[in-house]
Amino acid sequence: MPNLLSRLFGRPPEEKASRAPLPAAGHGVAFYLGGRAAWTSRDYPALAREGFQRNAVVHRAVRLVAEAAAAIPLDLMEGERALAAHPLLDLLSRPNPRESGTRFLEGLYGHLLVSGNAYLEAVAVEGLPRELYALRPDRMRVVPGPDGWPAAYEYQVGTRTVRFDQTGEVPPILHLTLFHPLDDHYGLSPMEAAAVPLDIHNAAGAWNKALLDNAARPSGALVFAGPAGAQLSDPQFERLKAELEASYQGAANAGRPLLLDGGLDWKPLSLSPKDMDFVEAKNAAAREIALAFGVPPLLLGLPGDNTHANYAEANRAFYRQTVIPLAKRTAEAVAQWLGPAFGPDLRSGAGLTLVPDLDAVEALAPERESLWRRVGGAPFLSEDEKRAAVGYGARGGGS
């Protein structure tokens, strides 16, 4: 079956089932010119390089969230009934020949955290999705329709472009975004919110590395110690200033030894990189980066109250406040996107929903134990009511 890569790089296309266009949902007002592409304003490659590839805090925060969210099993529900076997579960467990379900979701969450956007392509045969692929956000652009909502997506690799028209029972592209208050189509990356501490963290590390490379000499000032009343001429002053800026300023030249002319003396300054305490500045910047990603600093190994009790509480907060909400909203979007393709096969006609199985999260085990103990000790609840209170169905059969 053809996928995006085969269409971009010239493999022979195969015949797909045609999709009928969706009926109009209602009247609308056009705020955009039809067919004009709205490119993302953020530089995804720069965020990926400076953040995920070159910053240990960002790298670990993204991997921690993505791996934790991808590891939570998803239950497929038909109304109130959990389905043990279903084609949608098979698709999510092996979305394409190259990836397992967990690896696929890790890539999806990684794109979402680095870019603020994630794109999924569904390859359908005879109207049923058979393969899923996560596409790179920097290669995708939104094409708004006459009503301002996305009418199509264009994916570009080099000089080749593939257009995905958002028609059919299951549109070929699912676009996931993080909330952006100033953009109608694209999401906001946590890295953009943490751009200042990210730059501080990277610059502090570069400064300290350059300082060590240059024998860790402290900064200072040049003093002209010529005859009484003598001064540097304007050309001399400008030449010296330009030489200092070009050869001795910035993190790459930190601690570089000076070559002095006659009458010049070196005076160390009282405010040195050590006095500025770059280690503390880096720690503060790292905590702000962790805050933007919703990861407790303890889980990243940052200095703090590193005790076992605090670590357990931080781990529970991490799942409750960051991982579970991300997994829930993603599972909900995927079910709403792919569910209609499998809807006609359901006997009851109830819709399909995907929900994270929180009982499989080890970090929440103390909460489950506390809940079961409280519910089990409630004499005014029946057996079926107790089962419903902890998330299980009724026994049935009167037993």
Rank of each mutant, 00 (worst) to 15 (best):
N208E: 08
P379S: 06
Q231E: 13
D75P: 14
P23D: 13
R239N: 11
A204L: 04
I173Y: 01
A394T: 11
S219H: 09
Q53G: 14
V123S: 03
K16C: 14
P87V: 14
E383M: 06
E126W: 14
E14D: 05
A221K: 05
V170Y: 03
E367F: 11
G396Y: 04
G396M: 09
A38W: 09
L222F: 10
N117I: 05
N3T: 15
A210P: 04
Y155E: 04
L22I: 12
V29S: 10
Y392V: 08
M1N: 06
A71G: 13
E154A: 09
P273F: 03
R217F: 03
H185K: 06
L47H: 00
P23S: 14
W39L: 12
G349H: 03
M77G: 06
A360N: 10
D357H: 07
A230P: 00
K386S: 13
L188D: 02
P73S: 11
A309G: 10
G28A: 14
V279Q: 01
G35I: 12
A85M: 13
L298R: 07
D75W: 09
M77W: 03
L264S: 07
F318N: 00
L178C: 02
K282V: 10
K267C: 02
V196C: 00
V58D: 05
D147V: 04
E106T: 11
A215P: 05
G110L: 10
R163P: 08
L299F: 08
A284P: 00
S399I: 15
H201M: 06
D165W: 11
S272Q: 12
L258V: 11
Y311C: 13
V29W: 15
G110H: 01
L132R: 09
G205Y: 01
N3S: 10
L105V: 05
D165P: 06
A215D: 11
Y153C: 05
D184S: 08
A292M: 03
L83Y: 05
G393I: 03
P95G: 08
P23H: 12
A228Q: 15
E169H: 07
R63C: 04
F164N: 00
Y119L: 12
L4D: 04
A285R: 00
P356H: 06
P73H: 02
A84D: 00
R7T: 08
P181V: 00
G377C: 12
P190G: 01
R139Y: 04
Q236I: 09
A252W: 12
V29P: 06
Q236P: 01
M191V: 14
L364G: 02
A314V: 13
G343I: 14
L176K: 03
T102Q: 07
A37L: 13
A210F: 08
L89H: 12
A228V: 10
A314K: 13
P379A: 08
G250Q: 07
H185D: 14
A242T: 10
F31R: 02
V157W: 02
T40W: 13
P129T: 01
D90N: 15
P13N: 08
N315H: 13
L364A: 15
P150C: 09
P23W: 07
E14H: 06
E15V: 03
T330I: 08
